[in-house]
Simulated assay, not measured.
Amino acid sequence: MLNESLELIGRSGAWYPISLAPARTFIAFLSLIPVFAVFVLSWDLKRHEWGRALRGLVVFSVAMVLLGGLQMLTDNKALIFYPRERVRTDYLYGPFANHNSTGLYYVLALALLFAIGGKLRVRTITTTDLWSQWWVQVSVALLLVIAVVLTQSRSSMGVLFVVAGTGALGEISRRNMSAKKKALILVSVGVLSAASIFVLQGSSRFSEGLGRFDNLEDVRPAIWTDTVSSAERYWPIGSGIASFPEVFEVDEALENVWAFHAGRAHNDYLEIAQEGGIVGLMLVLAWIVWFVLSIIRTWNGEQRWHGLAAASGVAAVVLQSFVDYPLRNQAILCLGAVLVGFLARTAKGMMKREGEMTIARF
Score class of each variant (00 low, 15 high):
residue 241 I to H: 11
residue 103 G to R: 01
residue 291 F to S: 01
residue 60 F to L: 11
residue 178 S to M: 05
residue 73 L to Q: 04
residue 183 A to S: 11
residue 147 A to Y: 15
residue 166 T to S: 07
residue 218 D to G: 04
residue 155 S to C: 01
residue 175 R to L: 09
residue 354 E to S: 09
residue 303 Q to E: 15
residue 49 E to V: 10
residue 206 F to D: 03
residue 58 V to S: 07
residue 361 R to W: 14
residue 80 I to A: 01
residue 342 F to W: 12
residue 117 G to W: 07
residue 284 V to N: 07
residue 114 F to I: 04
residue 10 G to E: 14
residue 312 S to D: 02
residue 308 L to P: 12
residue 346 T to D: 06
residue 124 T to Q: 13
residue 28 A to M: 08
residue 249 E to L: 09
residue 178 S to L: 09
residue 246 E to R: 00
residue 346 T to Q: 07
residue 176 N to Y: 02
residue 248 F to D: 10
residue 224 W to F: 09
residue 89 T to I: 05
residue 135 W to Y: 14
residue 97 A to V: 14
residue 244 F to C: 13
residue 84 R to F: 02
residue 274 Q to E: 15
residue 292 V to I: 15
residue 192 L to S: 13
residue 266 H to K: 04
residue 327 L to N: 10
residue 94 G to H: 03
residue 172 I to G: 09
residue 351 M to F: 01
residue 215 N to H: 13
residue 256 N to Y: 00
residue 60 F to I: 03
residue 182 K to T: 08
residue 245 P to K: 02
residue 52 R to K: 09
residue 287 W to C: 11
residue 201 Q to D: 09
residue 244 F to P: 13
residue 330 Q to D: 12
residue 98 N to K: 03
residue 143 L to D: 04
residue 140 V to G: 05
residue 63 A to G: 15
residue 160 L to Y: 11
residue 189 V to G: 06
residue 341 G to W: 06
residue 290 W to I: 13
residue 76 N to Q: 00
residue 41 L to E: 12
residue 221 P to Y: 15
residue 216 L to N: 08
residue 18 I to R: 13
residue 64 M to R: 02
residue 339 L to G: 00
residue 231 A to E: 04
residue 263 G to T: 12
residue 285 L to T: 12
residue 6 L to Y: 00
residue 226 D to C: 03
residue 99 H to M: 00
residue 87 V to N: 05
residue 237 I to L: 13
residue 251 D to A: 10
residue 214 D to Q: 14
residue 97 A to C: 05
residue 25 T to M: 14
residue 210 L to E: 07
residue 47 R to V: 07
residue 182 K to A: 15
residue 175 R to Y: 01
residue 267 N to V: 08
residue 16 Y to C: 02
residue 73 L to A: 10
residue 315 A to K: 04
residue 220 R to L: 07
residue 233 R to V: 10
residue 272 I to W: 05
residue 232 E to M: 12
residue 17 P to I: 01
residue 267 N to Q: 06
residue 344 A to F: 10
residue 160 L to P: 01
residue 161 F to S: 14
residue 205 R to N: 08
residue 274 Q to C: 08
residue 360 A to F: 04
residue 54 L to C: 06
residue 251 D to F: 11
residue 351 M to L: 12
residue 302 E to L: 08
residue 5 S to Q: 15
residue 149 V to R: 07
residue 109 A to T: 00
residue 151 T to P: 01
residue 209 G to C: 03
residue 203 S to K: 03
residue 273 A to N: 00
residue 89 T to S: 12
residue 121 R to P: 03
residue 301 G to Y: 03
residue 351 M to T: 10
residue 272 I to C: 06
residue 63 A to D: 07
residue 130 L to T: 07
residue 182 K to R: 15
residue 249 E to T: 02
residue 181 K to A: 14
residue 209 G to E: 01
residue 8 L to K: 14
residue 68 G to R: 01
residue 309 A to E: 08
residue 81 F to E: 02
residue 59 V to G: 04
residue 75 D to A: 15
residue 40 V to G: 12
residue 235 W to R: 05
residue 219 V to W: 10
residue 328 R to D: 15
residue 279 V to D: 10
residue 247 V to N: 02
residue 101 S to C: 08
residue 174 R to N: 09
residue 191 V to P: 12
residue 322 F to A: 11
residue 317 V to S: 04
residue 273 A to T: 05
residue 84 R to T: 12
residue 216 L to V: 13
residue 313 G to H: 05
residue 225 T to A: 15
residue 246 E to F: 06
residue 155 S to V: 12
residue 231 A to F: 14
residue 147 A to T: 02
residue 362 F to P: 09
residue 227 T to Y: 08
residue 186 L to D: 07
